[in-house]
Structures are given as structure tokens and as C-alpha cells.
Design a protein around this nucleic acid. Structure first.
Lengths: 151, 151
DNA sequence: GGTCAAAGCTTGAGATGGTGAAGCACCTGG
DNA sequence: CCAGGTGCTTCACCATCTCAAGCTTTGACC
């Protein structure tokens, strides 16, 4: 295996299937690791999105869901002591979500315990890692619809 | 941007972040396309998992969720006319989910309308397509926990 | 044949995730 | 000051998910 001289270029359908399968498997590994710490995947995803303080509205944007939805998710993170709301200086409408030390700790545990994902990375050569990282970086802006705008 | 001759091998954390971002963006494209046809992402995912007839229990395995959950999802697919249940020959406990012609049609529409995903594929060279497909195929068995068992 | 454990599916309760509309507090421009 | 827009919350409503319990059927054992 390895340097198979296969020159057949996969079709879009084949790539879609492969990408979907890998994405789904990654997500299940993530959800399982989060569940071991009593978090749903949405909660864990939100926790990962607030490593730096983020206003509620911006968090909704990052998670790709409605702002009213974020209220409940942050409520639960707050009641678990993993994050808390702070008033924003300069605009009293805005509430900023800040991760707590315990939240950061659990987030690191979850990431460290994604065993299948780490196994998958171990199974890759340096060339493959570089290729995958490069492809992801190139494709992400297109896939996420951000053609240029930062933030 | 582009041909940076960076030979630095990405860390596991960097790969995880890249993979998560691409997976999330792909999923959002998928969910948006499904929503345009009145389907939730779970329903669309289930529809994709029954391209061949599948017993309820096996479908739960494919979707990675509880069997009781699949009952409701298939109920809705059935009420939309996109799939139906059939009795299994030989075991009257088993119900087999079969996609309808309309279901297959909608599934193809959804896949064809994932514009961002197709754009992302267009942006890749043949070498990149081959590399990505090869990496996915190699990594998937590890990531999905199936070390060898087929079927 | 009869009995019983196990398998496959459904149902119900309860919590979470998600949208949309309405409401309140606050900011901003006139 | 006032009008409109923005940010967050609340509410109603449905989909999703898990667990526990139930039903039918199967298969193995006596």
C-alpha cells in the first residue's frame, strides 16, 4: 500500500461520500468524548467557540444557529460552571460569554480523549498531514462561504 | 497566499481544528440544501442511509443513535412519501425501510444543490482530489472504529 | 409441544436543540 | 426627545435524542 500508482481521479460524488463519512465519524468521536463529561455536542461545540470571550450574537454566528438558541445553551454551560456572562464595556445590551478555568479544563480533556481521531492522525504520514492540512485550509473559505471577509 | 513552501508538519491540534471546520462547513451546506426541500438534516441523513433497503435496527446503527429514535424519523419520511416500511421475509419482527422513487429524486436534488461543496471541489486540483480521497479512505476505518469487520 | 430468554420495533416521559414571533433594554441618528 | 435599529431573552411549537417499558416474534432448551 502507499504509493499506489492509481491515476483515477475521484468524482465529486465519491469525494462527497468520503468527506461525509469522515466528517460524521469525527463528529461521533467528538460527541462521545463530550458525553463522557456530561456535555451534549452542542454544548461542547459552544465551549470550543468561546475560548476567547465572545458576545452572544457573535457566538450564534459561529455556531450557525439562531441567537435565541444560544441563550439556552449558555444557560446550561453557566449552570455547570463552565462559562459565565459578563457585561460588555460600552454597550449594556451586549453580554459576553467567557469560559471559566473549569470549562477550559474540560474542553482540553474532551479534545485529549478523542481516541479514534488521534488514532487516525497517528496512522498518517507527515506528507499526508501536510497535504490534508493544506487542502482543508484552501477549501475552507469556499466551503464556509467566506470569500475574503475576516472576523 | 498559496504555494507557501512551508514544510512544517501540522500538529494534531491543528489538524483537529482544520478537520472540524471543514466538517462543520460541509454539514451546514448539507443541512441548508435539505432544508430547501423541507427536510431536517437528520431526515436527509437517514434518507441517504436507505438507498438500499435497511432494517430499522441496522439503520439505527448507521445513524449512530437509538432505535427508538429511528421510529420517529422514518415515521416522518413515510408521511412525506419518501420512504416506506416493508415486512421482512423470514422474520416478522423486522421492518425494512425502503426509499421511494420520490425519495431518491429528492436525495439527488439535495446532493446536486450543495453549491458550496461543489465549489470547493472545483477549487481542487486532480492531485488534491486523489490525495484527499486516498487519505479519507485510509483514515475512515480507524476513525469509525471498524478495524476490519466488514458488513 | 411448551417455556422462557432474547431480539426487533414502538410508545411514553423528559431533556435538549432548533426556528420564529414577541417583548424589553439599550444605543444611535435626527 | 423620539424613532428606529440592535442585542438578548422569553414563549410556543416541533424535531431529536435517551432511557425505560411494553408488545410481538423468534429460537433455544427441556
Amino acid at each position: 500500500m502507499g504509493s499506489t500508482a492509481t491515476t483515477t481521479v475521484p468524482t465529486n460524488a465519491e469525494l462527497m461520500e468520503a468527506l461525509a463519512a469522515v466528517g460524521a465519524a469525527y463528529f461521533q468521536d467528538f460527541a462521545a468524548a463530550a458525553a463522557r463529561h456530561g456535555l451534549s455536542s452542542s454544548q461542547a461545540k459552544a465551549l470550543g467557540a468561546v475560548q476567547e470571550p465572545v458576545p452572544m450574537r457573535a457566538l450564534a454566528g459561529r455556531l450557525g444557529c439562531d441567537a435565541s438558541n444560544v441563550t439556552g445553551i449558555v444557560d446550561r454551560l453557566e449552570s455547570l460552571g463552565l462559562a459565565h456572562r459578563e457585561a460588555a464595556a460600552g454597550d449594556r445590551r451586549v453580554k459576553i460569554v467567557v469560559i471559566t478555568a473549569e470549562g477550559r479544563e474540560i474542553l482540553n480533556h474532551i479534545r485529549g480523549e478523542m481516541a479514534r481521531t488521534h488514532q487516525a492522525f497517528e496512522a498518517m504520514t507527515d506528507e499526508q498531514r501536510i497535504a490534508l492540512h493544506s487542502i482543508c485550509g484552501q477549501v475552507l473559505p469556499v466551503l464556509a462561504g467566506r470569500t475574503g471577509t475576516p472576523q
